[in-house]
C-alpha cells in the first residue's frame, strides 16, 4: 500500500511536462518459435497502426478506444523496461502479446514458444534509426498466463 501511495504522489503534485522532449519511441516485436533451438527470423510488430482510419471510426474512438489505450500502456511498459526493468513489466508485455494472439485466433496452440524484443526508433541525421534495446528470454506459450 505504501508503494501505491508513492505512485499516487505524482498525481497529487503533478509536473505537467507533456511532450517536453520527443524521446526514442518503442515498438514491440515478437516471434513465434516451435522450439527453444528454433532460430526464426520472422519478427512481427505487435499491433501495427492501420494505414488509414475512416471518419466514423475516429469519431467512434472518441468514446470507445480500448485497444489503442492498451497500446499506449504497452508503450509505457516498453519504456519502463529500459529505464527500470522488472520481471513484472516483462510479464505484462508477454501476457498481452499472448492475449492478442489468442483474441485474434492465432495458431498459438501449434506454437510452443514466444520471444519479444523492444525496438526504439529515433531521428538520425539522414532519417530514422532503429535500435534493439531489449530482447526477452524465450517463453513457453502457456495459455493460463493470459486469463
Amino acid at each position: 500500500m505504501l508503494h501505491s501511495l508513492q505512485l499516487l504522489l505524482p498525481a497529487l503534485i503533478p509536473s505537467w511536462r507533456f511532450f517536453d522532449v520527443i524521446s526514442p519511441s518503442p515498438r514491440i516485436e515478437f516471434i513465434l518459435l516451435k522450439s527453444v533451438q528454433d532460430a526464426g527470423d520472422q519478427w512481427h510488430q505487435l499491433r501495427p497502426n492501420p494505414a488509414r482510419l475512416s471518419f466514423t471510426t475516429m469519431l467512434h474512438r472518441l468514446l470507445w478506444n480500448p485497444d489503442w489505450n492498451e497500446s499506449l500502456f504497452l508503450v509505457s511498459c516498453a519504456e519502463r523496461m529500459i529505464e527500470n526493468p522488472t520481471k513484472d513489466t516483462e510479464q505484462e508485455i508477454l501476457d498481452r502479446i499472448k492475449f492478442d494472439l489468442k483474441k485474434n485466433g492465432s495458431q498459438v496452440r501449434k506454437i510452443n514458444y514466444l520471444q519479444f524484443r523492444l525496438v526504439f526508433i529515433s531521428r538520425d541525421r539522414d532519417g530514422l534509426r532503429k535500435e534493439i534495446l531489449f530482447t526477452s528470454a524465450i517463453h513457453p506459450c502457456a495459455e493460463d498466463a493470459v486469463s
Binding site: 500500500m1 508503494h3 501505491s4 501511495l5 505512485l7 499516487l8 505524482p10 498525481a11 503533478p14 505537467w16 507533456f18 489505450n69 499506449l72 500502456f73 509505457s76 519502463r80 522488472t86 513484472d88 513489466t89 505484462e92
Partner: peptide, 18 residues
Amino acid sequence: LFILHRFQGPYNGGSDRM
C-alpha cells in the same frame, strides 16, 4: 490505489493522473 499497484503506475499517464 489498487489500480496504480496493478499497473505499477498510471495506465494512461497524464489522463489517469488528472
